[in-house]
Amino acid sequence: MILELDSIDVVYDHVIQVLKGVSLQVPRRGIVALLGGNGAGKSTTLKAISTLLQFERGEVTKGSILFDGVRVEHSTPDELVRRGCVHVMEGRRCFEHLTVEENLLTGAFTRKEGSSVIADDLELVYGYFPDLKLSRHSLAGYVSGGIQQMCAIGRGLMARPRLMLLDEPSISLAPRVVEEVFEIVQKLNHEQGVSILIAEQNINIALKYASYGYVLENGRVVLDGEANELRNNEDIREFYLGIAGEHRKSFHNVKSYRRRKRWLA
């Protein structure tokens, strides 16, 4: 396993408990999905791993996080990037007044190799994201959402990570672009051996590319399993994929009790 969370609790501002006993694992070279609705605690989980939590006055109060066999819950973000864990934050967060290429180069901040190695990696990133090469000299604030998402992932890639944490890469992108982004992520996984943990509300797309998934609700893992199992799981089908749902909207209110019971069982 490249990443192991063992029943972690996360508290914001010393009092607001958001995660309760979350455990999850990401195998080496695996793609794992962290699923759940808005406010379920997906971003908090990723921030706990990358330790960005400390800058939002959040803290892991219980449990442990092992990245590559080393405990990291009291580490720092730059330390994690150096060790090979990069967090691509929700909302893309490109540096708007920097060009696309400058954005990519900031991703190599922690690296000690010479500029020729970095230049090679830049070409590697352009190889995976040809669209980035086309807009390399544009300010990142002015390119489309799809390009920004690619820029954010490419920027993360420049750190040569072994694990990437992707927070809702599909958010506010057209379905075709979402597909394109996920295809590239899969390719990165296969060819570069980067392990991936994706937080997504778009369960459909996430389970198409992931091999394993965890469902988070109110800060707890309520369900986990192989991706194909989850895809066929009745609850997931009903409540997230809307396949069985002829009255999909009303399900949410009427059947939520039953759903919870089944998950807890």
Partner: peptide
Amino acid sequence: TRIGRALRAVADDHQAALSVGIT
């Protein structure tokens, strides 16, 4: 320069700067 870029990155979005390992 690398440091100069990092400085402008921090100016734009300091959390995102942290996320790429800028100290």
